[in-house]
Write a protein that binds this DNA or RNA. Structure first.
Lengths: 197, 197
DNA sequence: CGAGTCGTTGAACGGAATCAATCGTCGTGG
DNA sequence: CCACGACGATTGATTCCGTTCAACGACTCG
């Protein structure tokens, strides 16, 4: 999974390629922000530590996302970034990145578009999570993600997909099976096809 | 609730003020996009109709939000916008808005910042909704929203807050009461104070 | 071969949703 | 001014279904 904007960007700006093993950190909370990251492969978990010492997950990032977008406008990180699996990351110098945006309104517009799309996607997931019935929630997610042929190609595991829509993975497996038995969809691995009716 | 960027913008760009009564529409699905809207007061529901005739909520917008950010980069609306209560909206001409962004990299950067913050906030809510225990979910929401004095001033009703974090409002009321009885917080109307320990 | 993880199924429990009813408040209109 | 409707806030009782715990097979990778 790659982002169009990120691809284009890499021809214009110097960047580094970082590979993290599982459980390795990309950055630490309260650390000064010098870079801006794009996750090309893998899974990254953003976790915040509170003063009381508790930890809370802020976000789980998958391939194709910029990491901590708000860090572009912040001095210090408000969370830790830890690789959940082996991950590949593109790293830009933050100052260079901002300077480049300033010279290219088309680049800035592209990034704005990317962010706007992120906002839209997050809102959809957010609403989907307000559906209480597992069956209906899954159907809502799938019909949002389907292409012109009613096919959904999951880019992440079923387990991660379950987490993404806020279901226990067991529930997700079970419900998918029911839906298949009911003739509402067919599935082969990570490929799902919605059937009309 | 107003947005800094929107305030500044209104001194630079012509705008119109729109007032909608409950159930009135701001725009319709498939309608051509000519405006860009900011919700200054009220509640707006974005609903999408599928080909099959079903309706799904895409987002419920509250005061202080730009409406359908992605519409800046799209030709047609993908959803309906309907006022849930009397609402006040600021309307810009979309072409003017984009043209202005193109001339002012600082304005574009401000908008980028606004969007980045939106993304961050949405991710936090998203993760919060993955907490199954009502009590823990509420505590997570409150400690995220608290100010320096551990005080949370809700800008929307308790009922809407419950919806925002994905709880039935009855559950929200009950759990708040329990938390108060347990000495974890105090509440007067829409003002909540978290107590340490 | 063994560790690790995903995918899968079973059983039981608990807690959140749901339905229902009441109260208070606010605005509206006759 | 009062009656009325609308809606938020609140509490009670019940149900149900999604979570959780548990166990196992399949597969990959070192």
């Amino acid at each position: 999974m790659t982002d169009i904007f990120c691809e284009e960007l890499s021809t214009k700006l110097p960047f580094e390629r970082i590979v993290l093993g599982k459980s390795e950190s990309l950055f630490l909370q309260d650390q000064k922000i010098k870079k801006f990251y794009f996750l090309r492969q893998g899974v990254l978990k953003l976790v915040r530590s509170t003063i009381e010492g508790e930890q809370s997950i802020m976000h789980v990032a998958y391939a194709g996302e910029f990491i901590a977008e708000a860090s572009l406008f912040s001095e210090k990180y408000h969370c830790f970034a830890i690789a959940e699996s082996e991950s590949e990351i593109i790293s830009y110098n933050k100052a260079d990145f901002l300077a480049y945006l300033d010279t290219s309104s088309s680049a800035m517009l592209s990034l704005l578009k990317t962010f706007a799309q992120q906002v839209r996607d997050l809102r959809v997931i957010n609403e989907i999570k307000n559906i209480n019935s597992a069956k209906q929630r899954i159907l809502a997610y799938l019909s949002n993600a389907k292409d012109g042929n009613n096919v959904i190609q999951l880019s992440i595991s079923l387990k991660d997909t379950a987490y993404k829509i806020g279901l226990a993975h067991e529930t997700f497996y079970r419900e998918l099976k029911k839906l298949e038995l009911d003739g509402l969809l067919t599935r082969k691995g990570r490929t799902i096809k919605l059937l009309k009716q």
